[in-house]
């Protein structure tokens, strides 16, 4: 309900603070609270209830017009129709027939990506570190602690177990997140309150993201130390192998932080339809531009190999790539101009 309250406040900020607008805000809030309570009593979970209440809200504009504060002059400030209508509090989608992402779906997506970030990060760490047990064991075998056969056996088993576990984690996360793949491909509509909440979550996450990147970078830099120390101090296998092992473990840990941060941050980019998931990019894909790109490069590659194997003039055929890239640019400009 906090989300709804904050959203209500933010819409009303744009209008003058008079007794009438205050009364309107309180009445609307009272109605939404009652509706929310009823939905919970009917058995909906919180997120579902919030989504439904938001969907039944409507557009504050019609109230404001009756009160005499018509029209929003600051339309120039909005970058898209979606932004404009969400700012006006238009939480009832009566629009282009796009897919709607509900409050509940958005919240669940964020939660799933949080979990996935950790699991995928762990999986990658395990993969990077998988040779490290083998290396450690081999190092010990050089110090005569264990036999070489035992070292190899233990090391390879450990590596296999780690990789298998990592793959398990990847598959599990992949399945959980699969149903959200459509968010990356298709354009969708999200009501203003959910949108605002996602932006708040993203801003709250930013410092965490920065911290992750810093910690990851530092650990990666530190990961070089064991190898250097080992080489400088001794250079013998019984020292070098364990130190490489330690370096790998540390490097993997650093990568974990990068991946975890990246995963969690990407879900906001997707939900807010920014950058590579923006509506323009999706529009382009829909108009077939993307598939042209894909087949184009496959054709170019095939052509390259055909000509090169045919004429054996590998020293010159690389020029084909330059020509292909230039042609691609030219075609791209033509398609853009046509629109």
């Amino acid at each position: 309900m906090e989300v709804i309250k904050n959203y209500l406040e933010s819409i009303f900020l744009a209008y003058p603070n008079t007794p009438e607008t205050q009364r309107a805000k309180e009445e609307l809030w009272a109605m939404m609270e009652d509706r929310f309570g009823e939905l919970i009593r009917e058995g909906h979970n919180e997120n579902e209830a919030v989504g439904i209440v938001l969907g039944e809200f409507g557009n504050v504009e019609e109230i404001m017009r009756d009160l005499g504060y018509g029209g929003r002059e600051e339309t120039a400030n909005f970058h898209s129709a979606e932004e404009f209508s969400s700012a006006a509090g238009d939480t009832g989608k009566e629009n282009s027939g796009e897919k709607t992402v509900t409050y509940q779906e958005a919240v669940e997506y964020v939660q799933e990506m949080e979990k996935a970030g950790i699991k995928i990060g762990l999986g990658v760490w395990m993969c990077v570190a998988s040779p490290s047990v083998l290396l450690l064991m081999l190092g010990l075998s050089f110090s005569r602690v264990i036999s070489q056969q035992a070292a190899v056996a233990l090391g390879i088993t450990a590596a296999a177990v780690l990789v298998a576990a990592a793959v398990g984690l990847f598959l599990y996360s992949g399945i959980r997140v699969q149903k959200y793949g459509v968010l990356k491909e298709e354009m969708f509509w999200m009501d203003g309150a959910t949108r605002q909440y996602m932006e708040e979550l993203r801003d709250a996450f930013r410092p965490v993201f920065t911290a992750h990147v810093i910690v990851g970078t530092v650990i990666c830099i530190i990961s070089v130390i064991p190898i250097l120390a080992g080489a400088v101090l001794s250079g013998a296998e019984e020292v070098m192998l364990p130190s490489i092992s330690l370096s790998l473990i540390l490097a993997g840990l650093g990568v974990f932080f990068f991946i975890n941060a990246g995963c969690r941050h990407s879900c906001y980019t997707v939900l807010l339809q920014e950058k590579e998931y923006s509506r323009e990019k999706k529009e382009k894909k829909r108009n077939g531009w993307k598939s042209f790109e894909d087949t184009y490069w496959i054709l170019v590659t095939a052509l390259y190999f055909l000509i090169s194997f045919g004429t054996r003039r590998w020293g010159s055929t690389w020029i084909l790539w330059i020509v292909a890239a230039a042609f691609n640019e030219f075609m791209g400009k033509r398609m853009r101009r046509r629109r």
Binding site: E27, L28, M31, M32, F57, G58, N59, I63, L67
Partner: peptide, 14 residues
């Protein structure tokens, strides 16, 4: 027919 909160408030105010 599910009347929107804003529509309802608008109407009673009017």
């Amino acid at each position: 027919y599910i009347i929107k909160e804003t529509t309802l408030y608008s109407a009673v105010t009017r």
